[in-house]
Design a protein around this nucleic acid. Sequence first.
DNA 1: TATTGTTATACTCTATAACTATA
DNA 2: TATAGTTATAGAGTATAACAATA
Lengths: 141, 141
Amino acid sequence: MTQEPPPVPSGRVGYLLARAGGRAIRNLNRALEPYGLRSRHYTVLSASAEHGGLSQRELGLVLGVDPSAVVALVDDLQREGLVRRDPHPEDRRTRLVVVTDEGARTLAETRKLARGVDDELLADLDAAEKRTLEELLLRLR
Amino acid sequence: MTQEPPPVPSGRVGYLLARAGGRAIRNLNRALEPYGLRSRHYTVLSASAEHGGLSQRELGLVLGVDPSAVVALVDDLQREGLVRRDPHPEDRRTRLVVVTDEGARTLAETRKLARGVDDELLADLDAAEKRTLEELLLRLR
DNA sequence: TATTGTTATACTCTATAACTATA
DNA sequence: TATAGTTATAGAGTATAACAATA
């Protein structure tokens, strides 16, 4: 699919959410291509930096990603030197995902790309409308 | 001093859209299970009924679905007797997707399920907020 | 030459079950 | 017994190329 047509069947909200969300993900994937990353790598990197040293289980919960998928995503990020897996001081089963210096630099750069994707998606809304949209999205179940 | 409204953390709206959209799709898929259909079958059936006899190419454009995927979806719906592929009166390459009587009945039933999924997703919003959200979603690029 | 539908194919995403090592 | 991480796997979604029939 490469075409992007406006007309919509029934104006259903779930359908509109799915389409807009899919577009956002595809646009971010395309923007991240030079980095060899996908949007889900970006969310893992971003959440790891924001919360500072989450376990993989916690990452999965926060991001709504299956634990087995977290493993693969962290594998990729670790291979690129963007995160480390540090031992948990008290629980030897657990491994804490920590962003490296290089990961922090990559995050700073890719964050700009994510902003750009959002800005383009929301280009026709004014500042107040953008805030309203985000607030409503946060209140969905 | 007027409080500066919290800035929209750019890069976050796309993420929220993707998560909410994914939830909506999964919920609808689960609701449609008894019918042996997925959410994409529902959108094809719904658009075919609404526009009445679209070609497969037009269906793909309207729904943002790849033509090769439309073939598979229409195959499924046709096998279940929910749509027909009628010849185009003027262009023998084209096949018009037409909803059968049984398809119309199934659509009436599944539409209730789709509404239920939406209602649950939006349960914490009042009527005005629901309209606002839909209006904003329609204005995304 | 271009377009519609179609087949084949490959890659990503999602979800589940089962295994290991620890607790 | 239960939990964190891991591996393997299968199904669904997405995207591309190539082909036949027709325009």
